[in-house]
């Protein structure tokens, strides 16, 4: 009787690579999209769309001694209907009004303008980034570690999926080596 294993390792590897690959599709998309977003955070804000509108307010007598009246004046000029959350004197020349919806108005006395800042959350990117940057629960960190392990399996098992002339051990090893050398080049250059 032969002791030789009856397990077909080649087939098992291919099946595991296929099924783990399917499982990782959603996670790969989340990490890839938020990775691009975070890479370019200096060029655009992945979490919020922030827009500014300037309203010219020259020739206005402001109620500087009464914050409530001043708020009413500013709201009237900006033509907003949102309830007020709070107000704050940034400096003798700047007064801010915060609205319930998260937006705010800044009266800049020395520039005769009201700046209306509108803040609109990008909910999908925010959720992706929270996951990518581990800003959720501790259990997500454990899950992320498992996902990293699965990615390692996909990378290594991928080397044993194809036999013959298209295997990564023949002429196509150039591709494997290139994928290793390129990041190394960025480290040493």
């Amino acid at each position: 009787m032969s002791n030789k294993s009856s397990i077909n390792w080649f087939k098992l590897n291919r099946n595991l690579h296929r099924d783990i690959g399917y499982f990782c599709v959603g996670l790969v998309i989340i990490f890839a999209v938020s990775g691009i977003a975070v890479n370019h955070k200096d060029d655009w804000n992945p979490n919020y769309k922030v827009s500014h509108q300037q309203i010219s307010v020259s020739d206005e007598t402001w109620q500087l001694d009464n914050d409530e009246l001043l708020i009413e004046q500013i709201i009237s000029h900006a033509d907003v209907s949102e309830p007020v959350k709070a107000s704050y004197w940034v400096s003798p020349q700047e007064f801010k009004v915060f609205l319930k919806n998260g937006n705010n108005l800044s009266l800049k006395l020395n520039q005769d303008i009201i700046n209306y800042e509108a803040i609109e959350p990008r909910h999908v990117f925010q959720a992706f980034n929270r996951l990518h940057l581990n800003e959720t629960t501790a259990s997500w960190v454990i899950f992320s570690d498992i996902f990293a392990g699965l990615l390692l399996f996909l990378a290594i098992s991928g080397l044993f999926m194809i036999k013959g002339k298209n295997s990564p051990w023949g002429s196509r090893s150039v591709l494997v080596i290139s994928g290793m050398l390129l990041p190394a080049a960025y480290v040493f250059l």
Partner: peptide, 23 residues
Amino acid sequence: RFENLRIKVEDGDMVFPMTAKGS
């Protein structure tokens, strides 16, 4: 008046939402 205090965390330790302005 005109005074404030900055609250600073390491990136990712806590993430304060922009919409919390005024709260």
